[in-house]
């Protein structure tokens, strides 16, 4: 059960927050003017807080149910995890700050932070996965790291196609080749889930001793967490019709 709980949050992160990362990576392609970029960001704006928190939850589950693995995984990949965290911070700050001051230079700078942070996140995840899945470390991991990064980018495009309108929607659909928007989104989601499951199978998933106490608590909380997230998805189920707070 411990493993299923961890898988739930990690896979949830990959599918949900993976789309935010992908949209950030594709921001210069999707949004060609400041106004367009703001609308592209509105596609992920209401979700990004509730999406990235899946990774915080996964780290919490690791700390509580797999404390040994938490330590091994994090300090065993020290430089990659540090880069991932810095990229995450930079991406988030780009999102939070871009709309707080009017002015083209300010917004261009923080848009740049969003793009750089998103690429940094995708490549760090790629490097981490290259290590876990293939055992490749160091500069040689750069090549295999590109595969998951490309997957994040594609996933972001399929999500953007679901959320945007008009020209932006057409641009986002560039890779779908006429297939339905929902089908391509389901496909990239499934691909991310497969990568996540494969990585999980390669990890020494030995639970610690807190399970008997913690697992019932987590299982009780889960319906509430899913309901809270479902409320967000329901509230913002419409296509983007203009800029948001960000």
């Amino acid at each position: 059960m411990e493993i299923l709980i961890l898988a739930f949050f990690v896979l949830g992160y990959l599918v949900l927050a993976g789309a935010d990362i992908g949209v950030g990576m594709a921001l210069p392609y999707l949004g060609r003017s400041p106004a367009e970029r703001r609308e592209v960001i509105a596609a992920i704006a209401p979700f990004f807080l509730g999406n990235e928190v899946w990774l915080v939850a996964a780290a919490g589950v690791l700390a509580g149910l797999f404390p040994r693995l938490e330590g091994e995984l994090l300090h065993g990949n020290y430089p990659v995890v540090v880069t991932l965290l810095v990229a995450w911070v930079v991406r988030d700050m780009g999102l939070w700050l871009r709309g707080r001051v009017p002015g083209a230079r300010w917004q261009a700078f923080w848009d740049g932070a969003i793009v750089a942070g998103s690429w940094g996140l995708a490549l760090s995840w790629g490097t981490l996965l290259a290590h876990v899945l293939l055992g490749i470390r160091g500069p040689a991991a750069a090549l295999p790291a590109l595969v998951p990064a490309a997957l994040f980018g594609t996933h972001g495009l399929t999500f953007a196609a679901l959320r945007l309108r008009g020209t932006l929607r057409e641009r986002a659909a560039v890779l779908s080749g006429g297939a339905g928007e929902w089908r391509t989104y389901a496909l990239t989601s499934a691909a991310l889930v497969v990568v996540g499951v494969l990585a999980g199978l390669r990890l020494p998933l030995e639970p610690g001793s807190a399970g008997p106490l913690l697992v019932p608590v987590v299982l009780t909380l889960l319906p509430f967490l899913v309901a809270a997230q479902a409320w967000v998805w329901w509230t913002f189920r419409h296509r983007v019709s203009g800029p948001s707070y960000l």
Binding site: L49, G50, V56, A57, G60, F224, A228, W231, V232
Partner: peptide, 19 residues
């Protein structure tokens, strides 16, 4: 305690803050 913090508190806080 950290696990319960992330799930019972921060997960909900962050989701609802977006809302």
């Amino acid at each position: 305690a950290l696990a319960i913090e992330t799930l019972a508190a921060f997960f909900v806080e962050s989701t609802f803050l977006g809302l």
